[in-house]
Design a protein around this nucleic acid. Sequence first.
DNA 1: AGCACGATTAACT
DNA 2: GTTAATCGTGCTC
Length: 197
Amino acid sequence: MPMKNAARLTRDFFEQPTLQVAINLLGQHLVRIRPGHARVAGVIVETEAYIGSEDLACHARSGKTARNMSMWGDPGRSYVYFVYGMHWMLNIVTASAGLPAAVLIRSIFPLEGIEQMARRRNNQPLEELANGPAKLCQAFDIDGALDGHDLCNPESKIFIEAAETPAPESVTSGPRVGLNSVPEPWKSKPWRFCLNP
DNA sequence: AGCACGATTAACT
DNA sequence: GTTAATCGTGCTC
């Protein structure tokens, strides 16, 4: 049964220090609306923080470009980018406008619209539908057309819905993944957060 | 203008 | 554990 009167998260949730937003997003629901389709939604269970041009793992390291300019925009907007010649990644801009920082959504557990997700994900099992940053973009039909989108706009077709705040002891942190050639100390910063059962 | 490689995934051995 | 897929980006020549 769909939750009643669940509130969309507003700007103030995202206009906070990036590590705090990365932790606070755990347990919240990502929701995708597409005309003619049922809602697609799931619980955010893994995030990573990318913080400013000093963070050499962050795309903002090489300054503002056409690709990454969304990170300099308002907190609560999306930063969607393309990588490996085939995958899209969803980030949510944090901190304050002008400070290039964002949270990568790395993993989601499906709640609503599971049949749609399965169709988009080649009928893989439930656990495999959105348990990766590129997988969830495929499952939620997220691509470059959504880059720079304002998730706080009431009209937005993609947004975060408030859910229960997890107990602090169910949150773990560790180094971000996929940063093979990133120098220390950035490579080892414990800026990846997981929500455990 | 050319080139190495990436905030990954799926399909191999 | 290893690797192909596949192309935009940023760096070097």
